[in-house]
Design a protein around this nucleic acid. Sequence first.
DNA 1: ATATAATGTTACTTACCAGTAACACAACAT
DNA 2: ATGTTGTGTTACTGGTAAGTAACATTATAT
Lengths: 200, 200
Amino acid sequence: MSAKASVAPDKAERMPPRERILAVAADLFYRHGIRAVGVDAIAETAGTNKMTLYRHFASKDELVAEYLRQSAKGEAACWERLNAQHPGDALAQLRAWLKEMFGHVVSRDERGCPLANAAVELPEKDHPARRVIEECKSATRDKVIALCRAAGLKEPELLADELGLMLEGARVTAQSVGIDGLGARLDRMSEALIAAHAPK
Amino acid sequence: MSAKASVAPDKAERMPPRERILAVAADLFYRHGIRAVGVDAIAETAGTNKMTLYRHFASKDELVAEYLRQSAKGEAACWERLNAQHPGDALAQLRAWLKEMFGHVVSRDERGCPLANAAVELPEKDHPARRVIEECKSATRDKVIALCRAAGLKEPELLADELGLMLEGARVTAQSVGIDGLGARLDRMSEALIAAHAPK
DNA sequence: ATATAATGTTACTTACCAGTAACACAACAT
DNA sequence: ATGTTGTGTTACTGGTAAGTAACATTATAT
């Protein structure tokens, strides 16, 4: 039991095959890139075989799409959690979202946004993953705009884009260069942006 | 002569093989992704063969690194051009750089920053492309910081990061969702950021 | 005209890839 | 007990990947 399951160390065996495959695929796709991971490796790491994989997923492309759907679902769950933690306080939700995202950026073993990375890796316009990516990114933008507006901030669309682009830029930049002090700078930047849109 | 050379339609034949290969590789890598393009396709599209390719490049990874070196060289040339167009005027150079970059973002057939995309596609820390990416990105950041400082703007490091992250975010976001009106919004955002750092 | 260097050609190796067929085994419900 | 369903196993197809060897051809320089 050396370096076996990096996803669910112990109870991986108890999960049904489909969940194991999806969890392993998500981990490998995210860490090594989608094109760099073959279905054989996924099946083997998930402790099963290629046939079972293809009984649950029509193709590798569909597995990729499902991986991204899971990622998008995670984002949606994040919004609900923030809403529960700061009910009725849009500004607090916005700040909590930024704080959580900044945590991702500066974390070790972080490789950026799974959806944005997939968009880079899969330029084919008819790939089933493309729909998922676009829908999730649009939904996120709408959500941030709504929060900015509910918080009474001026020009909510512009502010949402400022924050969203800065965050997306930080996630991709963190893959190219070091992240020393980036977290603190992100905090300052976002607060400056929010302050610049404060109601007069 | 249907859809033959998308890089140098006519004089592709006159360029020496090494340059043809590099030009074709750059085009294919950028449009389809690095892992999606094989050396056979590159050689064939360049009107040559795999042997000649391997006589000029030690491996595909080295060809990739050279492709990114070319891209980085293009960025360096851009800085010199801007310096020549606005000698001594750091603020004008900064604005011209932003304008040029925004043009890339909102252009059709644009697929983001070649270096950032490569960083997403090649997570292996020992890949020869990694050095090129990190050096170019660091150099760009230093250059923008220097311009902000020379322009007398407050907190040049912070402003440079704000602009740089926004730009990087825009380039990656443009690959996921539409770019309607993004150019105009980028103009407003960058001007707001610069204004926020204006000397008192 | 001839030596030399660069390029082209063919064929090959080794390895991986996505996807499928046929069959064996286990669990579980009736 | 038996049938069904899900899973495991092996082996396979056809295609593509990176990289190399041996040899033929062309161009250039002297």
